[in-house]
Structures are given as structure tokens and as C-alpha cells.
Design a protein around this nucleic acid. Sequence first.
DNA 1: CATAATTTGTCAATTTTATTGACAATAAGT
DNA 2: ACTTATTGTCAATAAAATTGACAAATTATG
Lengths: 150, 150
Amino acid sequence: MTKKPTSKAELLYAGIQMTRPLLRTISNRVEADLEGTGLTVGQRAVLEAVLNLEQATAPQLTNFLQLKRQFVAKVLKELLDKQQVEQVSNPRHKRSVFYRLTASGKALIEKVRTAEMKRLEEFVKEFSEEEVETYYRMQYVLNDALAKRS
Amino acid sequence: MTKKPTSKAELLYAGIQMTRPLLRTISNRVEADLEGTGLTVGQRAVLEAVLNLEQATAPQLTNFLQLKRQFVAKVLKELLDKQQVEQVSNPRHKRSVFYRLTASGKALIEKVRTAEMKRLEEFVKEFSEEEVETYYRMQYVLNDALAKRS
DNA sequence: CATAATTTGTCAATTTTATTGACAATAAGT
DNA sequence: ACTTATTGTCAATAAAATTGACAAATTATG
């Protein structure tokens, strides 16, 4: 059906090209899990980011998510209103406070996470530890490498 | 900075989570290459899909891109107007014709492709053939697996 | 074969996601 | 001190994608 890429670079390119459809596929799935939580896709992404970073300022989240600061700020405000994140004062910066998950925010994102993890369990069996490790590393390094030279 | 995931499933989950920021990073890059081509992100995605599939009906593209048929149809029409894709009659279906790239459409997408490939060349050196192969396969299978159980 | 159900195309309205612009407050660099 | 860059905030706008509605063509079923 699809042309099989030949060179290493082409293979990587083809893999990356898959990112867009994959994200759409994931989004379609995710939205099902989000039903009833009252979360938007953006809110979910920010919650997930805060969970990963444990504690982060808006600029850090902006950098992590590769979105515009105004958008991240807006989503953070929504999450504050819903009491799913809270502010922690930042000794090094009066304006730019830290955000972290509240208990309910943590419970919420963990719940979504668990639901989605379940879906992956079956799938992940088909791959070895090394393969998954490689995938993770590629995603991480790729994002890093591409983001940096801007 | 980020919590390092432990189990295989968690690692995969973390890798997948990276998809959204990564797509944003890619989009930011891509938009630079798209400058002056007059292409939108959607048009580019469809061109790329047609290139991959060589020849495809709108429903096939819809399935491949995981978007709504109306959106794909709209983009296809734009590309038809720009003469970057053309219709080929489908013997098996009067309404649902095949789309394929015109010479100029092919030249255009190849140009964008080349520009982006250049960026990857440096990066790809850091990874072995096997690693890239694994990445590609993961992306492919993951997309397939998640798309199917809908 | 007839007819019901599904697929596909098309046009329009709407929603969601994200960007851009503008300005004030704070912080950092010189 | 004073200039420059960063951060927060509010508003307007744009881009990407979905949803709804209906007709034409196709496929499935009795």
C-alpha cells in the first residue's frame, strides 16, 4: 500500500510523517477517556506536563509543550479555576510562580492515564523492552533536537 | 527534570505523550519550509499522503489521515484548484475517483520534503539503522493498532 | 429485482485550538 | 540608573477540524 522507505533518513522521515495521523488517532481515543471529566485536550496536555515536571512555571510549561505562552496561561487559568492546579510561590521570581497539581488534579489525570495505559498494555506485549526504550529515546531526542535549533 | 518512567507500558505511554509537543515542534519547523509555497499544513499533509499512497480515493485518504471526510474533501478541492493533484477515474466507483499528484504537485512536495530531510540528516547519524527501523515500525503499528479498534 | 441501508460528495455553520497584538509589571543585564 | 528582555493579562483573529444536512451513488438484503 505505502511505498517502503529505503535509506535511514527516509525511514526516519516516514516515521515522523506518521506523527500527525498518530496524534489524531490518539486524540480520538483520548477524547473518549476525557468524556465526563470536563477536560479539554489542552487542559489534559498541561496537566500531564505538570505531572511530568512535578512543579513548573508557565514559561517552563510553554517550552515543554511548544505552545505560545498566552495559550498556556489561558489553560493554566482554567485549571486554577477548576482547582486542578495550584500556585506555589517562587523564591527566585515574584511574578513567575510555580504550578503543581492539587490532590484532585492529580487524581483526575491519574484516572485518565490509567484508562489509556490499559489500552496500551495489550499492544506493548508485541514489543521488547529495548524497542520501547528506543522509541521513547527517539521521541525525546527528536523533540529536543528539533526544538533547540529554533 | 522529568520523572523517568519505569515499566515498559509506562515508558511507551511517556513516549506517546511526547507526540503532541513533538508534532508542535515539527509544525513550527515545517511552517518555515512551507513559507512561500502557499501550502497550508493540511494541504501539505494530504499531498504527503497522496505521495505515499501513489493513488487514493478521498475515503482512503480520510482513513489514512484520520480526519473527517468533509475536511479532506475541502483540502482536496483546494489542491485541485491549485492543480497539485488531479483526478483519475475509478473503474470500480463512479463517484469516488482516485487522486494523484500532478507533475507540479509532485515537484512541490518533493521540494518541501528535501528541505526537511536535510534537517534530519545530522540528527539521524546519532541513531543506528535498527533504531530507526524500530521507531518507524512502532509508529506504524501503534497507529494501526489504535486506529483499528474504533 | 426492489428497496432499505450505507457510502460518498458538497455546502454551510460552528467549535476547538492556537496565534498574534498590545500594554503593563517585573526582572535581568549593562 | 537605565535599557532590554521576560512574564502576565486581555482581546482580536486565524487556522484546523468537526458537525449538520441533504442529494447522488453504491452496496446489502429480503
